[in-house]
Design a binder for these strands. Structure first.
Length: 294
DNA sequence: ACCCAGGTTGTCA
DNA sequence: TGACAACATGGG
C-alpha cells in the first residue's frame, strides 16, 4: 500500500446544491456501493479509474484526486449532474398534487441519480438479492480487494468480467457472495465475450434494455430496473423493491400483490422521471419519513 | 440462537 | 400465469 498524494482541494460548482444528507444518500444509500466516509466526513471512492475524495459544502462540493490517474472536473460535473438537468425533471413530477411525493422531495434536497458506471452497477446489483445495503457494500469491496487491480490506498478496481468468469470457487467463496457467486460468474461468462456490451445495450430502448438485462443470469425485473436507472441513466425506470412495495402500499393505499403492478402504477403516476421519484420515496421510506404522521 | 435481508430461480398446479 | 420454497451468508 503506497501513500496517497492528493491534489489540492478544488471547488465543484453545482447549479443546484445538495444537502449533506442527500449527498450521503447518493453515495451510500444503495445507488453506489463503493464510497467510504471517514471520521472527518470526507467521502473517498474509486471513480473513473482513479481515486477521488469529496467534502460537502453548502452550495458546492470540494474535491481532490490522485494525480497519477487523475479524475477530471468534466467527469465529476457529469457524475453529479452539475448543470441541473434532473432538477428540471423533478419539477415536472406531480408533487403539486401528491403530498407524499412533495414531502419526499423536501426530505432530501438536491438528491439526484448519479451517473454510475454500468459495469459497477451490474456487479453491485447482482449481489443485492436478499441482502442489506451494508452487506452488498462488503461483497463488492471483497470482489475488488480479492480480484481487482489496486488503485491507491486500500482501494481496488472492480474485476473485469474476464477475471470473474475465470475466478475459482475458492476465490468467490472468499467474497462471501453465497449463492450470488454463480450469478456473478455466469453473467461474467456471457459478458466476457461481449466487450462492447455497454455500448450495444445503451442503443436499446428502455423496455428493450431492461428485457436484455434480464437475459443475464441472476438479473430479474428489479435488478434490471436498477441497472437501467443507475447504470444507464434511464430515469423513467422504476425499480420495485421491498421498500417501494411498502411505501406505495402504505402511503398510496395500494393493495397489489405483484411487483409488476406497482411498477405500472409508478410509470403512469410519475411519468418519464419515475426513477427520480422512486429515489426520493426510497430514501424517505428508509429514513422513516414517508408518511405525514412520521 | 434466531430472523431476515434493494430478489431470482426452479418447480408444481 | 401464479404461488412458493430454496438459496448462502452475516448483521442485528
Amino acid at each position: 500500500m503506497t501513500a496517497l498524494s492528493w491534489t489540492e482541494w478544488r471547488t465543484l460548482p453545482l447549479s443546484h446544491p445538495i444537502a449533506e444528507k442527500s449527498l450521503a444518500e447518493q453515495l451510500d444509500g444503495g445507488q453506489s456501493f463503493r464510497w467510504e466516509k471517514d471520521k472527518d466526513g470526507i467521502w473517498t471512492g474509486p471513480l473513473g479509474n482513479s481515486l477521488v475524495s469529496l467534502s460537502h459544502h453548502q452550495n458546492h462540493l470540494q474535491w481532490r484526486t490522485c494525480p497519477s490517474a487523475a479524475c477530471t472536473e468534466e467527469f465529476l460535473l457529469s457524475y453529479f449532474d452539475a448543470q441541473g438537468q434532473q432538477a428540471k425533471l423533478i419539477d415536472r413530477l406531480p408533487w403539486r398534487s401528491d403530498p407524499v411525493l412533495d414531502r419526499a422531495l423536501k426530505n432530501f434536497p438536491g438528491l439526484r441519480i448519479l451517473k454510475h458506471d454500468p459495469h459497477e452497477t451490474l456487479i453491485g446489483f447482482l449481489c443485492s438479492s436478499n441482502k442489506r445495503i451494508l452487506q452488498i457494500r462488503k461483497m463488492v469491496a471483497s470482489l475488488a480487494n480479492q480480484l481487482g487491480e489496486p488503485i491507491g490506498g486500500s482501494f481496488h478496481q472492480l474485476p473485469t468480467w474476464t477475471v470473474l468468469a475465470r475466478a475459482t470457487d475458492a476465490e468467490l467463496k472468499a467474497c462471501a457472495l453465497g449463492y450470488r457467486a454463480n450469478f456473478i460468474r455466469n453473467t461474467a461468462r456471457v459478458l466476457e465475450s461481449q466487450p462492447q456490451w455497454v455500448e450495444e445495450f445503451q442503443k436499446l430502448s428502455t423496455p428493450d434494455l431492461i428485457g436484455k438485462l434480464q437475459t443475464l443470469p441472476g438479473v430479474g425485473p428489479k435488478v434490471a430496473a436498477c441497472v437501467a436507472l443507475f447504470g444507464f441513466q434511464r430515469l423513467e425506470s422504476f425499480p420495485v423493491d421491498t421498500w417501494i412495495v411498502q411505501a406505495l402500499s402504505s402511503a398510496y393505499g395500494l393493495n397489489y400483490k405483484r411487483p409488476a403492478d406497482f411498477e405500472t402504477f409508478g410509470r403512469i403516476h410519475f411519468g418519464s422521471a419515475a426513477g427520480l421519484a422512486q429515489q426520493y420515496l426510497f430514501a424517505s421510506a428508509r429514513a422513516g419519513q414517508l408518511l405525514p404522521s412520521a
